[in-house]
């Protein structure tokens, strides 16, 4: 695990800087605020885990940054990539960054690859969109990229259609596709969720390995705190579209100051308690984003709630250097 203590991230200019990011969707039932005033930054070589239950808005963050929101969605705020403002850029200018500066690995490798095209062209077109290479060069690059993600028989894979590969192989293809232009930031949106448990672990291992090899900054989006433990430097916990807590990974696991984070930690399967695996799910449902409450979004499900939680939104405050939380309690027991 990387050492956080003397990390250089506060002295260096961040590669990716997100400030006051809001994402709203207009639906027939009303406006939904999926992401609410989100703020984070990412420096070179760093991995930030964004953790939240489904519906917490974490995927929309990734889509908003690269202008991939659905028709009825819009984002406001600021996203700076290498110092340049990229939020809501016209598609033509955004296309220089998509794939080349910042690339995405999607959640479901079954549906995220085009079923009507062979793997080869899907890989090489990504490279050819950004660099003046010939078709042959792009094919060679695709082949070596498949090799880099440890796919056996890369040449055969290039000629295959997606449905001829297994789920794990397809996710490796997705990762190769994301990395073929050597981006500086990789956003991995639940990269292992749709896969079998054993395959999951291997994909995460691969991501860690590639991160070092390609010197990537990575945004790892997941609902599973367990995934974060071995892969991330810092963690941002989201709930109801807002940041609940953000800290170095060790602080999250051992010194968490937010009831929601503690709830998530409690929901992890534990193997240490005399071989008994105990799972304590957080009771209740995630909040409806249709009628936002004035107070803390987690109020209804929180064991520690008291009067202010209902009416006042807790501000995001520093607990210690690099550790922030949004909770009215000074300190949790």
């Amino acid at each position: 695990m990387p050492v956080i203590g003397q990390s250089p991230q506060y002295s260096e200019q961040p590669l990716l800087e997100v400030r006051h990011l809001d994402v709203r969707f207009t639906t027939p039932e009303g406006e939904v605020k999926a992401v609410d005033d989100l703020e984070f930054s990412l420096v070179r070589g760093e991995t930030l885990g964004v953790v939240g239950e489904s519906g917490s808005g974490k995927t929309q963050v990734a889509h908003a940054m690269l202008g991939l929101l659905a028709e009825n969605g819009r984002a406001t705020g600021s996203v700076r990539f290498a110092g340049e403002e990229i939020l809501n850029l016209p598609a033509k200018r955004l296309n220089r960054i998509r794939g080349a500066g910042m690339a995405l690995v999607f959640q479901d490798p079954m549906t995220s690859l085009n079923p009507y095209l062979r793997i080869g062209p899907q890989l090489s077109e990504a490279l050819m969109a950004h660099e003046p290479v010939s078709g042959r060069q792009a094919r060679e690059a695709a082949c070596s990229m498949l090799d880099a993600v440890h796919l056996a028989h890369p040449r055969a894979c290039l000629r295959a259609y997606p449905h001829e590969l297994s789920g794990g192989m397809r996710q490796r293809v997705m990762i190769a596709m994301a990395l073929i232009c050597r981006p500086r930031v990789l956003i991995a949106d639940e990269p292992s969720t749709a896969l079998d448990a054993t395959v999951q672990a291997r994909i995460l291992e691969l991501l860690s390995e590639l991160k070092r090899e390609f010197e990537l900054a990575m945004l790892l989006i997941t609902h599973d705190l367990g995934v974060v433990a071995g892969t991330c430097d810092r963690v941002l916990i989201m709930y109801g579209g807002r940041t609940m807590e953000e800290a170095a990974v060790d602080d999250i696991f051992y010194r968490s100051q937010h009831p929601y984070t503690r709830g998530l930690l409690g929901a992890l399967p534990r193997l240490d308690a005399a071989g008994v695996s105990r799972m304590a799910a957080i009771p209740g449902q995630p909040p409806s984003l249709l009628e936002p409450q004035p107070g803390c979004p987690f109020e209804k499900r929180c064991d520690y709630r008291f009067e202010p939680c209902k009416h006042q939104r807790p501000p995001l405050e520093n607990v210690s250097a690099g550790h922030r939380k949004a909770c009215h309690h000074e300190k949790l027991p």
């Binding site: 991939l68 033509k92 999607f106 479901d108 085009n114 990504a126 969109a129």
Partner: peptide
């Protein structure tokens, strides 16, 4: 609306390539 079109757009392909090829 399908995910693989989102993938194509995320690669930075020009709009007409996304429509015509994918």
């Amino acid at each position: 609306r399908s995910p693989f079109i989102r993938t194509a757009r995320a690669k930075g392909l020009p709009a007409h390539t996304v429509v015509l090829r994918h």
